[in-house]
Amino acid sequence: MTAVIADVIAILIGGTLGYLAKKLIPESWNDIIMKGLGLADIYIGVMGFLEGGNTMILIVAIIFGAMIGEGLKIEQRFDRLAEKAEKKFDGDSGKSDFAQGFITASLTMCVGAMVVVGSLNAGLKGDIDLLLTKTALDGFGALMFAASMGIGVIFAAAPVLIIEGGIVLLAGVLEPFLTGEVVGEMTCVGSLLIVGLGLNLMIDGCKLKLMNYMPAMFLPIVICPIYDWITGLV
């Protein structure tokens, strides 16, 4: 868990420094910075969803993930929670977007083969090199995101701790399910959501309910074996 804790600390430090730097950035710069981050997110997402090899699995995961998220009203519940957190932690700092900062940082830091493979390596082999590389990237990313979007970015440390820590602790149990195919499709789905995130940041009025799509990221764990079984029968 050493590398996971280091990653969390890097996000907290980077996010805090970025949040403090936000006060020095002129408000007139905010829009162009946000759109720049949107462009970067689209690039990251396009690079990531090329990891997938099966369009059908992507489509099924997105459809059923959206149905689950909409049924559970994840976006609405999260918005209410974010509003309360913003009033408590960022109520006196002027214009802020707690939810956008949290979602942006969480998706960017919790999606990708580096998360899964790095955590599996740490849990199974004690090899933390990949997670330490991710730690450096996350610390810098948190600084950049928080400088534009505020304190919500810092709270992305929580899902990073839960996902990476969970995989590390349960690596022996999860390894048979997190095959190369599954990890690739999970990365593909998550990266497509990052593209959606970039569109939200770049296009005024675009409001994709990305939190309602979040369950789709984990559905390849179930869909891939079912798909392989069906194609095997055919």
Score class of each variant (00 low, 15 high):
residue 156 A to K: 01
residue 156 A to M: 11
residue 156 A to W: 02
residue 157 A to K: 11
residue 158 A to Y: 10
residue 158 A to S: 03
residue 159 P to E: 11
residue 159 P to C: 11
residue 162 I to S: 01
residue 163 I to Y: 09
residue 163 I to E: 12
residue 163 I to F: 10
residue 163 I to Q: 10
residue 164 E to V: 06
residue 164 E to M: 10
residue 165 G to Y: 04
residue 165 G to N: 11
residue 166 G to I: 09
residue 166 G to A: 12
residue 166 G to F: 04
residue 166 G to P: 09
residue 166 G to D: 12
residue 168 V to A: 07
residue 168 V to M: 04
residue 168 V to S: 10
residue 169 L to V: 15
residue 171 A to Q: 14
residue 171 A to D: 11
residue 173 V to Q: 09
residue 173 V to R: 00
residue 174 L to I: 08
residue 175 E to L: 05
residue 175 E to H: 12
residue 176 P to F: 07
residue 177 F to W: 15
residue 177 F to C: 13
residue 177 F to V: 15
residue 177 F to M: 15
residue 177 F to Q: 15
residue 178 L to N: 13
residue 178 L to Y: 13
residue 180 G to F: 05
residue 180 G to K: 04
residue 181 E to R: 11
residue 183 V to E: 05
residue 183 V to L: 01
residue 183 V to D: 14
residue 184 G to E: 13
residue 185 E to T: 00
residue 187 T to K: 12
residue 188 C to T: 00
residue 188 C to P: 07
residue 188 C to L: 03
residue 189 V to G: 05
residue 189 V to L: 08
residue 190 G to H: 06
residue 190 G to P: 14
residue 190 G to K: 06
residue 190 G to D: 12
residue 192 L to D: 13
residue 193 L to V: 10
residue 194 I to Q: 00
residue 194 I to D: 15
residue 194 I to H: 08
residue 194 I to W: 09
residue 195 V to H: 05
residue 196 G to T: 06
residue 197 L to S: 00
residue 198 G to N: 11
residue 201 L to F: 05
residue 203 I to Y: 04
residue 203 I to V: 12
residue 204 D to V: 10
residue 204 D to G: 05
residue 204 D to I: 04
residue 205 G to S: 04
residue 205 G to D: 13
residue 206 C to A: 15
residue 206 C to H: 09
residue 206 C to K: 02
residue 208 L to S: 08
residue 208 L to R: 00
residue 210 L to V: 09
residue 210 L to I: 14
residue 210 L to G: 00
residue 211 M to I: 04
residue 213 Y to H: 03
residue 214 M to S: 14
residue 214 M to E: 10
